[in-house]
Structures are given as C-alpha cells and as structure tokens.
Amino acid sequence: MIRSHFISHDGVTIHYLTSNEDSTSVPLLICPGLSETAEEYIELMEYLAPRKCIALSFRGRGLSDTPDRGYGLDEHVADIEAVIADAKPSRFHLFANSRGVSYALGYCDKHPSNIIQSLILQDYPAEHKAMPEGWADEYIHHYLVPFSRQRNIRQEAVRGIAEESIAKRFSRGIHKRLLVLRGKLEGSLLSDEDCRRYERLCVEASFAAFEHSGHDIRNTEKDRLYRTIYEFIHPA
C-alpha cells in the first residue's frame, strides 16, 4: 500500500511516500509541519484509501538529506516541485499543516495553475514567518531534545531555518476551493484576523473549527480531522 521514493534535485535528496498508486481519483499531496515527516501521515494516507496520497519529508527531516545551507522559503518550495516532477500527478489536492502551510502557499504563489484542485490549510496564517532571535536554541532544548524528535528534524535544519527564513505575507488571490482548519483553544496559530484575511484572499474559503484543540489538532481530534479532510475532497 505504501511505497518509498527518493528524488534528488540541486544536490539534495528528498524522500517521499505514496499510497494506492493505481487509484484513478485525484491524489492528495501532503506538506508536513516544521518537524514532521512523511511517515507521520501514513495513518491519514491509509484512512483515505483507496485515494492515492503523496507525502514528503522536507529537507533536514526524516529520510531526506540535511544540506549545510538552503532552508529558506524558495528551497522548501523547490522540494515540493521536485516531488511533483517525480510523482507526476496531472492534478492534486494540496493539504498542509502548520509551517508546511507557508511552503504550500509559496508553491501556489509560484504555480497558480489548474493542477491544484483544492487547498486544505491547517492552523497557520497566510505568511512565511521569520524566526525571532533565540528561537533555534529554545526549540532545540525545550522541544526537540525533550520530546526525542531529533530524527524528525535535525538541529542543523532548525538552525538553518532560523538563519535563512525571511518574513513574507502572501497576497496573491487563491482561486481554488479552500478549507482552513483551525484550533480554538490556546496554542492555535490562527487568529480571527488571520481567518478574515483568508476570506479576502479566497472567495471559496470555508472554515472548520476544532473546539477541543489548540495547534496540534491531529493529537486531540484526529477522527474528526481525518473525516473533515475526507469529506472536503470526496468524491473528486
């Protein structure tokens, strides 16, 4: 059901997973969050069967390479481009979580074409954030090491993201069906104004609020999250 692939571009090898490759339905391309890997989405991929899914691990994460440099928005968008070029979907739904939202929107900004059938964006505003001073050490010592996630994202990647990320607010209109998933408890990264901005960017924007979740919706309301994704992209 799940197949593993490696694609090299610009000297960096990116790992991605596919499921149900013989399916004729429109596939779902998954852009994980900051420290997430493709493997963390296998359960969702299985839930959506028999739909084909494609999930990548961005540079510095999972089984993908960890280059010395190249952790800005453009390089992460290039990871998505490389996976799409290798997997060759004629069109796809695009789902992104947390920091992956900015990478997905960066791709959409660069490729405003009909290949993207719809967008699902989870708990992140329409912007690529620069990291504040001291963020890398805080993230490594208070999250990455205590929660044993060094194999999910390497410290070199965390420091590269801190050094190379430049703030950008996405302003291009989103001319797709859009579903924004939002946690309602403390810890959510989406404000009311962020949601209004999505409404201004997309006339087809809809919203799903998760009343019992902060930012990590998958760990608090997984069943409803998976069902919401399924219903939005079904039967296309």
Rank of each mutant, 00 (worst) to 15 (best):
E156N: 14
A136D: 09
D194N: 15
A136G: 12
R99I: 04
E231Q: 14
D216L: 09
A82V: 08
R177D: 14
I7G: 02
D68G: 12
R69N: 14
N152L: 05
R196L: 13
L185S: 09
R227S: 13
P235V: 00
H93G: 06
E75T: 10
E46T: 13
E21P: 06
F95W: 10
G60M: 10
F210M: 05
K129T: 07
E211N: 13
R3Y: 07
S118Y: 08
A38P: 02
D22C: 00
K52H: 11
H141F: 06
V83T: 07
R169Y: 02
D79Q: 09
S57L: 08
S8P: 01
K129C: 11
R177E: 13
F58L: 09
I84C: 10
Y103T: 14
D194F: 03
S8N: 12
I217N: 06
A209M: 11
A49G: 11
S4C: 05
Y230N: 06
N97K: 06
I7Q: 03
H15G: 05
R169V: 15
L189M: 14
G106D: 06
L73D: 09
K168G: 08
G187M: 08
Y107C: 00
K222Q: 15
D109A: 14
E127N: 09
H111W: 02
H76F: 15
T228N: 09
S35A: 15
E36F: 00
E127Q: 13
F207Q: 01
L94H: 00
E133D: 14
Y47V: 07
G183H: 00
D194W: 01
I217Q: 03
T18L: 04
S148N: 15
F147C: 01
G106C: 07
K176S: 13
H142E: 13
E36D: 12
F210E: 07
K110S: 14
L28E: 00
I140G: 03
H128Q: 10
P125E: 04
L73C: 11
V101I: 12
D86T: 01
I14S: 01
V26W: 03
F92G: 07
Y107Q: 08
R177V: 04
A130F: 02
P50W: 11
Y143S: 04
M1Q: 08
L121D: 01
I14H: 01
I115W: 06
I2S: 00
P50M: 10
G134N: 05
S188M: 02
H128G: 01
H234Q: 12
E193D: 15
T18V: 03
E36H: 06
H93E: 09
P27Y: 07
L44T: 09
A162W: 05
I42T: 12
G72Y: 00
H76A: 03
N97E: 11
I153N: 07
A104N: 08
R218Q: 09
R61S: 13
K176F: 10
R151D: 13
L178C: 13
K222V: 01
L190S: 02
Y71W: 11
L179A: 08
I174Q: 14
F210K: 02
E46Y: 09
Y124S: 12
A78P: 00
G214I: 02
Y124P: 05
L34D: 06
S64W: 06
K110D: 05
P89S: 12
S213H: 04
L44Q: 07
E186A: 13
L94F: 11
E81L: 05
L73I: 12
I229C: 03
R172V: 02
